[in-house]
């Protein structure tokens, strides 16, 4: 569903991502982790068609992101770390607008379901300026999910959500994976990655440090017989100081 082949992204002479290759199949949730500046957001932005890759091939549901951007974009949803909303559209108008952009059939009932799921049903007439940070995040998520994308790219999806919202978001991600979506989740919350991701890709300075299932990663970097947490494995893999 998501295929990345030799992705390289340069900002001038700075190498943000170097020769990155991986794939995510339907039903898989891949955690993208790494220290600040590792290239996680750049990778997601290249996959989302937001910025062009300098080299390499990226395919979303069989569509080349560079050559068939519209077909690829129709099937994906990108959720930035900061909710990006229109100041002058209400919650409901955001969903109507998104429905037309993606030509969503029967969007009213889908929108109602999503608003109920994300506890925004009573905020339909509110502007973003009247919403809390968490509610804005929920609205951005509702807009992203409205066209039922088959590829979901999350950049720190839980920022600003309350405990209930976090629980529901995790359930929602897992449910969509079970329904066949391919999901990449970039996060610094390693316990979240451990909880919901089937695979992990660890990046450092734009290079792959480790890639595989959670069990494979643990096995590779574990120094003891007992099962170690992803946090310990992460520090060992990236060589970052633990304190």
């Amino acid at each position: 569903m998501i295929e990345v082949q030799s992705l390289t992204k340069l900002y001038g002479h700075f190498v943000a991502v170097n020769d990155l290759t991986f794939s995510v199949r339907p039903g898989e949730v891949m955690g993208l982790v790494g220290p600040n500046g590792a290239g996680k957001t750049t990778t997601l932005r290249c996959l989302g068609g937001i910025i062009p890759a300098t080299r390499g091939a990226l395919r979303v549901a069989g569509h080349d992101v560079a050559r068939e951007p519209l077909a690829a974009k129709q099937l994906l949803a990108y959720f930035p770390d900061e909710p990006r909303l229109f100041d002058y559209l209400t919650v409901e108008q955001h969903l109507t607008f998104t429905a037309r952009l993606y030509q969503v059939r029967d969007h009213q009932s889908l929108a109602r379901e999503l608003l109920a799921e994300l506890e925004l049903a009573d905020k339909a007439e509110k502007l973003p300026s009247e919403l809390s940070r968490g509610m804005k995040q929920k609205l951005a998520i509702a807009c992203g999910l409205l066209h039922q994308p088959r590829v979901l790219l999350f950049d720190e999806p839980l920022t600003g959500l309350d405990p209930g919202g976090i629980r529901r978001m995790k359930d929602s991600i897992l449910r969509r994976a079970r329904e066949g979506a391919a999901i990449i989740l970039s996060s610094h919350l390693l316990h979240l990655v451990e909880e919901i991701c089937s695979h992990v890709l660890i990046l450092k300075k734009g290079e792959v440090v480790a890639h595989g299932t959670l069990a494979e990663i643990r096995q590779r970097f574990s120094q003891t017989a007992s099962e170690e947490g992803l946090e310990t494995v992460f520090f060992r893999a990236t060589g970052e100081p633990e304190s």
């Binding site: 974009k73 930035p80 990006r84």
Partner: peptide, 15 residues
Amino acid sequence: QDLRLADVLKTWPLP
């Protein structure tokens, strides 16, 4: 007005 949302605009399926 929408330039600050350039990354979102780029994800839309529109030529």
